[in-house]
Computed example of a mutant assay.
Amino acid sequence: MTALAEPTSGLRTEYPFTLPRGYVDEHGVVHRDGVMRLATARDEITTQADPRAKQNPAYLTVLLLARTVTTLGAVSEVDHFVVENLFASDLAFLQDLYRRINADGHTEVGVSCPHCGQDFTVDVAGDAPGGS
């Protein structure tokens, strides 16, 4: 995956990721690598006002991800149809990534080795060397 250019301000706004399973398109092609951008206030407000989210609050997640996942493999457009057809594990992964980058501001988590007890960080977005 190519590196993303960082804005001159130093604020990271795009986060590459690799889905655990991947989106399977109508031709059977699996798409796993993508990019999610930081959400804006407009993303949050617009999706909450959407009639589908008002009718079913759980649909808010689909709408937010469709707006903030900017690329997914060779899929021409990531829309609500694509998000609706993700495997549950991939949807959960993207929900967690959304929360991490928009609330926590990073994709790293602290972990400890179960064998030696050494503490280290892992990039859960999967864009670090050796990531899934």
Rank of each mutant, 00 (worst) to 15 (best):
A58D: 11
L72R: 06
S132I: 13
T121L: 14
D79F: 08
A125R: 04
V29K: 14
R37W: 02
V62A: 05
R100N: 11
G117C: 04
D123K: 08
D33P: 08
A58K: 09
R42C: 05
F87D: 13
V122S: 08
T107Q: 11
G117P: 01
T71K: 06
H31C: 10
H80I: 04
E108N: 07
R32M: 06
S9P: 01
V29Y: 10
F17N: 07
H80W: 11
E14P: 03
H27K: 15
T8S: 15
R12G: 05
P51S: 13
E108C: 08
G22N: 04
E77Y: 07
Y59L: 06
G126H: 07
D33V: 14
V62C: 05
G117I: 09
G117K: 04
E84L: 07
T47M: 01
D25L: 01
R52P: 00
A92D: 15
F81H: 15
G10M: 01
D50K: 00
T61E: 02
M1L: 10
F17S: 10
A128F: 09
D50F: 00
R67E: 06
P16G: 14
A53G: 06
T18A: 13
A49V: 01
P129Y: 06
G10I: 07
L94H: 03
E14N: 10
A103W: 03
L91Y: 03
V62S: 03
A92T: 15
E44C: 09
R12L: 09
T70V: 07
T46Y: 02
E84S: 09
M36L: 13
V24K: 12
G22C: 03
R99H: 10
R42N: 09
T107S: 09
H115L: 12
M36H: 06
T8R: 15
S9A: 13
Q118A: 14
T71D: 01
V29A: 14
P20G: 01
D96T: 15
D50Q: 00
I101Q: 02
A5C: 07
P129K: 04
D43N: 03
T71R: 08
G130F: 09
V124C: 13
V78K: 03
F87K: 13
H115F: 13
E6W: 10
Y59Q: 02
Q55A: 15
P16A: 12
F93K: 05
H27A: 14
T61W: 02
R99C: 10
G131N: 11
D104Q: 12
P7T: 15
R32W: 10
V78H: 00
Q55H: 12
T61L: 05
G110C: 13
N85T: 06
L94Q: 00
E44A: 00
R37K: 05
I45V: 13
N102I: 06
R12K: 10
L86V: 02
H106S: 13
D119F: 14
V109I: 15
L64Y: 04
D96Q: 15
T8A: 14
R32C: 09
D25I: 02
T13V: 13
P114K: 01
V75K: 09
